[in-house]
Computed example of a mutant assay.
Amino acid sequence: MLAAIKLIDSLVKKTLTAFCAVLLLMMVAFTVYSVVMRYVFENPPVWGDLLTVLSNIWLVFLALALTVRDRDHIALDLVYTWLPLKAAFAVQQFWSLVIFGLGLIMIIYGLEAVDTMGGKYWEMWYFAWEDGGFVFKPNYMPKKYAIAIVPISGFLVSVAALASIIEDSARLKAGTYDLANETDVRPQTD
């Protein structure tokens, strides 16, 4: 059971990392294309800047889940080094719970925002899933598609925070717990 959970955790991390890499590549490609079209050919695409911004937003929100799972988010690492291990564990678990709560808020209000988001991006046509396949829609893309990353990221952040809490608790119980990123901040003892 534990091996299956670790495999799923690894696959999710690799998938999110791949999505982030693709989004970064798209962001660079859209920017370069827009700049070349604007300054060399004097005919910029109307969609170039929008796709760059949307790629950036989705990249940041997906990367948030990765940083939470790897415990690379902003933390009080220096303060942890001054505390006894169990106190540092308690503080770190508290912040993981806060991040878990933030993820829940992102889900709840993100779904509400997606549901109530009006308007369309006039620059973008889009594809939709209808009758068992993708259908090209020649009208404008609804803005709710862009904001849909908020509840998705909220779910991923909540799961990542919960996984970190469970993993750290199991490691503390087993006596193998050590602070996340502790090698970066703990003083060297020889």
Rank of each mutant, 00 (worst) to 15 (best):
I165R: 01
L59G: 02
S55P: 09
R38G: 04
E42D: 13
W125I: 09
F19A: 01
M117W: 04
E42Q: 11
M117P: 04
V79H: 04
A170R: 14
T67Y: 10
W58R: 03
D184W: 12
S164P: 07
L62N: 00
L85V: 15
K137D: 03
V12K: 01
T52I: 01
V157Y: 06
C20T: 00
S10L: 11
Y140F: 14
L50C: 00
A113Y: 11
R38M: 06
L85Q: 13
F134E: 02
L16W: 02
P44S: 10
E182I: 15
T67I: 13
Y145H: 09
G101Q: 01
V53W: 03
M1T: 05
N139H: 15
P187T: 13
F61G: 01
P44Y: 09
D184G: 12
D131H: 04
K144A: 08
R69W: 05
T176H: 08
R71Q: 14
R69E: 08
Q92E: 15
L64R: 01
M106S: 05
F19L: 06
F89E: 08
Y33Q: 10
W47T: 04
A63P: 03
A75S: 15
R69L: 07
V22I: 14
L76A: 09
M106P: 06
F89T: 07
G119N: 09
L162G: 10
R186C: 00
L7R: 14
W95P: 12
I108Y: 13
Q93I: 15
F127E: 07
F94T: 15
Y33P: 06
L64W: 09
L16P: 05
I165K: 01
W82A: 14
K144W: 15
V36S: 00
